[in-house]
């Protein structure tokens, strides 16, 4: 069994020591700190990127909130303006309507008055015409002579009854 060859132990141990110690020094001094730095840097970078993303998300949220608020305000204002306009318009319409109604009422009054006047005048004329007609009829029928005063009296009496 070559493993138990005592004379081969010394060179193996010697070279094990040389290679292992060299490897240990290179690893401990150079390689491992370098790998650690790279991994650390990557972890930091990822963390800072995540932070940045978080911040950007936050500012986006803020912008969205501001936009939403502005939109809501604008909508409220638009609503108010619309309401105001509507009220103003309806007020105007009401006023105009009232004016027109007033005019109509005035005109109706005037017309009524004119009608009443016309009626009175007509009635007055009617008694004259009736008197004339009665006088003529009486004259034709009886051939008598009637004074105007008598005829008027009779007509007034007839009209009044």
């Amino acid at each position: 069994m070559p493993q138990l060859e005592l004379l081969d132990f010394a060179p193996q141990l010697m070279w094990l020591a040389i290679t292992f110690i060299t490897l240990y020094i290179v690893m401990a001094r150079v390689a491992l700190p370098r790998i650690a730095t790279v991994i650390e840097e990557r972890r930091d970078r990822i963390a800072s990127d995540l932070d940045e993303a978080e911040q950007l998300k936050q500012s986006t949220d803020e912008a969205i909130a501001a936009y939403e608020q502005a939109l809501a305000e604008a909508r409220a204002r638009a609503h108010a303006i619309a309401q105001e306009t509507r009220e103003a318009l309806s007020r105007e319409v009401e006023a105009e309507k009232a004016e027109v109604e007033k005019q109509i009422a005035k005109k109706a009054d005037e017309a009524e008055k004119a009608i009443a006047d016309a009626k009175t005048a007509a009635i007055a004329n009617l008694s004259d015409v009736a008197s004339g007609a009665a006088e003529t009829i009486v004259k034709e029928l009886v051939g008598g002579k009637l004074t105007k005063a008598e005829v008027n009296k009779a007509v007034s009496k007839a009209l009044a009854s």
């Binding site: 060179p11 193996q12 290679t19 490897l23």
Partner: peptide
């Protein structure tokens, strides 16, 4: 005895591979 043997060669190779 610090002879460079076939074992030494492969120890050196292994260390070099790791490095």
């Amino acid at each position: 005895d610090a002879s460079f043997t076939n074992s030494s060669l492969f120890m050196v190779l292994a260390a070099m591979c790791v490095i």
